[in-house]
């Protein structure tokens, strides 16, 4: 079984370090992108299975990143990390096609569960499309 490829987009060096470290120790093939450009590049070179996107308060460009990713790769599963007072962005993100969202501070166990769920959905979709 190939490890699930996860791309984290957080714009906070420490946060991505810790997140990717922890995900790797849990068996994921995790990498980090600093911004949407890097993320899009990664999408082309090594498309991830699941994306974890940090939605910061008062940063509409984070939602833009979501839109861009989805337009490039409609099947991609995106999990949003929302922060206090930015519920609206979270809801908007779900409308734009995000898989799910988690409030911060994020609990690692929950995030891992969501990543598995998201990946599961992808796999079933792939299988189905392969079967037809």
């Amino acid at each position: 079984m190939q490890p699930i490829r996860v791309l984290t987009i957080t714009k906070n060096e420490d946060f991505s370090d810790i997140l990717t470290d922890r995900l790797r120790s849990w068996g994921f093939d995790a990498t980090a992108a600093d911004n949407s450009h890097e993320a899009l590049e990664t999408l082309l070179v090594r498309p991830p299975d699941v994306v974890v996107l940090n939605l910061r308060a008062d940063h509409d460009d984070d939602l833009e990143t979501l839109r861009l990713l989805k337009s490039r790769n409609p099947d991609i599963a995106i999990i949003l990390l929302t922060c206090k007072g930015a519920m609206a962005s979270g809801i908007r993100g779900l409308e734009l096609g995000a898989f799910d969202s988690l409030p911060q501070p994020v609990e690692l166990g929950e995030l891992i569960e969501k990543i598995h769920l998201a990946h599961q959905r992808l796999v079933t979709a792939d299988d189905r499309s392969a079967a037809t």
């Binding site: 906070n12 420490d14 946060f15 810790i18 997140l19 922890r22 940090n54 990390l81 922060c83 911060q104 501070p105 994020v106 609990e107 690692l108 166990g109």
Partner: peptide
Amino acid sequence: EPRTIILPHRSAEELSDL
């Protein structure tokens, strides 16, 4: 199992709240 929580920023205030 213990739960691990990752904090979005370093803040003694937020951590105390948590």
